[in-house]
Write a protein that binds this DNA or RNA. Structure first.
Lengths: 260, 260
DNA sequence: CGTTGTGAAGATCTTCACAGCT
DNA sequence: AGCTGTGAAGATCTTCACAACG
């Protein structure tokens, strides 16, 4: 059975820290914008501002790639674009397959920013036979039965999963069996994959929950600032099963009102 | 002018580390699944496996919330569900507005997992007058002109931006001016917001680029393992402007073939 | 000069390993 | 006996601050 490795153990990716890798696309985007405006060089300060990070971090990040700047001057925009693209592997073309052509899958297929950077939607796959043949974003949807063949025929190594959560693991297994080694998962499920396969997840619901946490905290701070004693006036009845005598909640603990 | 703070300076969020907050939704999802199967208690080991993390991390995470487990037994599922929900602020309802009802915006509006956890799509907003009134996912799209009123009338504090990149910053500014303090940004742009406003971004293209990086690395390792001398046979002509004599690339450096 | 590149310090996050409780 | 909760060690990431250099 596959161990649910989701985030790569501790492999130092050819020396470049993961956190840096995650920011390279950001720099690349900012640099591309500068390139389009024919700006020849840029300082770490300017570029950092454009990418929304601080300049020390940016310089440190670039230092892992090599010495690509000129002291007293800055970085050559075109040169950096090329170096980062190469580092990210964007000088080659990556055929991508999207599995699960519902609302989201279709939206992604239509997403322009896709092709812009070396990625090409090579195949759309769905389990619904009724969809087979239907063109979405100019590409005919193919049936799941042919998944294996589609993946190998197109040399797909990156798969995007936009199926309902129940189907995600199964689709994932089939993709991996067919040779896919990188998966972008939009289904709200934890995927189990063998070692050597990378999974990244995008989860709307999780992002919103994180925002809600901070949002709540802001509201709480406001109240505290106003000198309001924090005390939920009449909270929802909290479910309790095992009722231990001495819970150690950090502050709020359980609401005072408890169900029988 | 707003300083481009994107990721919250260093505010220790009521003592709970940001990394922990980011995992709470994962735990909550796993716990909800257990709850639906009427599982009464769960050990850190089991729950960790279901959430795709290791058990030490999970226990440490929970320790920031308080002592909610029972030694020798595990955690009471219902009780934990409640505590985490409360911690994340999901015991209350969060009205959300989606701005930019294109393919992606519509897909999100239709996304079910949305409402499941305290989030409610309160409004859909688009700049296209032709869309005004059109129902998407059962909700009539409203025009951007009324953004201010819509946000205040519905008490929206969380906004989702799914506009084209060019419009994102402007929409963001208007949302913030109207009172929104949390933004989920799907547009491939760095947003500048005043302090006190949280921004989280979801960027398909960035995720793919990160995968491509690792994918490339795998390919390189394979080649290395086979004893193949790594040498791009005929790479794209690399753009060079300022041609410095002594570049210090970590390995590959520039391709041997250089344009005049 | 002005700006990069980087050791070193600091902050945050992860993992270990075991004492402490049920 | 079994599992949680946690100090401490280790790993990773960020920031500082300044020497090195064009």
């Amino acid at each position: 059975m596959a161990t649910g490795r989701t985030h790569r153990p501790a492999t130092r990716s050819r020396g470049i820290p993961e956190a840096t890798v995650a920011r390279l696309p950001l720099y690349l985007r900012a640099l591309t914008a500068l390139s389009e405006r024919s700006v020849p060089t840029v300082s770490s300060e300017e570029l950092a501002a454009a990418a929304g990070v601080n300049s020390a971090k940016l310089r440190k990040d670039f230092s892992y790639l090599g010495s690509y700047g000129t002291r007293g001057v800055g970085y050559d925009v075109e040169y950096l674009v090329y170096q980062i693209s190469r580092e990210l592997g964007l000088t080659q073309d990556w055929p991508v397959a999207i599995v699960g052509i519902g609302n989201l899958g279709a939206a992604l297929a239509n997403y322009g920013g896709f092709a812009s950077r070396g990625f090409r939607v090579a195949a759309l796959i769905d389990a619904d036979p009724a969809m087979a043949g239907t063109p979405v974003a100019g590409i005919a949807v193919q049936h799941t039965d042919d998944l294996d063949r589609i993946i190998s025929d197109n040399g797909v190594s990156i798969g995007v999963i936009t199926t309902p959560p129940g189907a995600a693991q199964q689709v994932c297994d089939r993709l991996v069996a067919a040779g896919v080694t990188s998966i972008l998962n939009f289904a709200p499920t934890v995927l189990s994959v063998p070692d050597g396969v990378d999974v990244r997840k995008v989860d709307l619901s999780i992002e919103l929950q994180i925002l809600a946490f901070h949002e709540q905290r802001k509201a709480g701070e406001e109240a505290a600032a106003e000198g309001v004693a924090l005390e939920d006036p009449d909270e929802e009845a909290p479910p309790m099963r095992a009722t231990p005598a001495n819970r150690k909640g950090p502050d709020g603990d359980m609401p005072a009102v408890m169900p029988a």
